[in-house]
Simulated scan of single mutants.
Amino acid sequence: MSVYAGLPLRLVCYAAGAAALSIAGPSLWNAPTFIAAAASVATALCFAVADVLFSTHRFARRAFVTAAYNKAEVEALGARVAALEMLRPAASMTAAAPETHDVSLETANNLLQFAAHVSARCGRKVTPDFVADSAGDPIGDAQIELHLQPIVGIPDRRVQHYEVLSRLRSHTGTLMMPAEFLPAARATGRAADIDTRQLSSIVGLCHRIGDRHMETRLFCNLSGDSLQSDSFRAALTTFARQQKALSQRIVFEIDAATAVTLNTEVAADLRGIEAMGFAFSVDKASLGDLPRLQGIFRRPGFLKLDAAILEKADPGVLKALARGGTQVIATHVETEDQAASVRRAGVALGQGFLFGKPRPARMDDSARRRAA
């Protein structure tokens, strides 16, 4: 609703108040009628001007925030399209014969031109650092930066765990979001490298935390591209063996779309890591995924379900998960109504902007060196 929606009614109230004071003023203030009327009108006018200025300020602030959000969306679009432009085969850069016309390439070029046009209108060119610096290794040269989003107990809103979200900080200081660097990382086979560096950073963060909050766990995301790599799984198994002391601090998180497509070899490796004491979390899951997930893991330690799904979930299924040792986490909790609905469903843990947005993790120098 517009910030000016109730302004006319308020102005009418100010005018009515001025008229009432003009009539009652002479007897109330023991002043001449002209002076009482002037004072009443001046008072009402001051209130009206203040109301208009306040409403204009709110409108301008909302417009500024909306413009900044739209600008960020356009820059992200430009980054993704520019990444596609950088990663297309070298052969497609040459003039193609009419009979080998590439429709997808033409579409990508059109999108690139559109993104450049809109970004230029917003006052910035589409030159993200990881695309512009094509001569070096922009992904390898960038530094991993960890951001933490809290997972809280819904009844008391106390922080129980954190999900670790990785960002890349370029050599120029620009912070790159996953939507900007993940497509390029996957296309160039660098997803496993990012996940490996993320694990090293999380170990550094665990050491910084020390023995404080031993019950707090850090949820570390692993991409499907990394899990399909034999070398990465071997490194992950070695990591789990060497860092077994952190098995109660680190939770490996996989999205459901990746988990249900894992073959028997990958599933066997993950069960071996489970046997070392590490828990797994399945994100973006649905209740229909449960039979397949039970065939992959011994038991998922955590299952993340959207708050909208939990509102319609069968309480018996949720109780069966709890009896089996799986903790359900409600995700995308954005309103108090959703939090109340999730709590009524018997879910004790929640994650979403209602409870906290991702914030940069405080890391000491040794942790930063591990992230480099």
Rank of each mutant, 00 (worst) to 15 (best):
R292P: 03
A48D: 02
L11K: 09
P178H: 01
D230S: 13
R121M: 11
V118N: 05
L205H: 11
D255G: 03
A36I: 07
F302R: 12
A68T: 07
A268S: 14
R323M: 09
H161V: 02
I254E: 09
L227F: 04
L349C: 03
V3D: 13
L175R: 06
P150G: 06
R233D: 03
A179G: 15
A267P: 04
F59Y: 12
Q160T: 10
A42D: 10
E180H: 06
Q351H: 06
A257S: 15
V164L: 01
R208L: 13
R157E: 13
T331Q: 13
E73H: 08
M177R: 10
A187M: 11
V260D: 08
S55M: 11
G204P: 00
D137Q: 10
P315F: 04
H171E: 14
V3R: 15
A279R: 15
F181Q: 00
V328A: 09
L77E: 14
A234F: 03
Q149W: 05
L293R: 09
Q327K: 15
T94M: 10
R217N: 01
K319Y: 06
P360M: 07
I309N: 10
V328G: 09
Y4D: 09
D230T: 11
A361E: 05
N30L: 11
F355M: 07
A234K: 08
F355G: 08
Q338S: 08
D365W: 06
N109H: 12
T196S: 12
L53N: 03
Q243A: 07
L310N: 05
P8I: 03
L7K: 06
D156R: 14
M86V: 05
D225N: 09
T94Q: 12
S55C: 14
Q160A: 12
L222N: 02
L182Y: 02
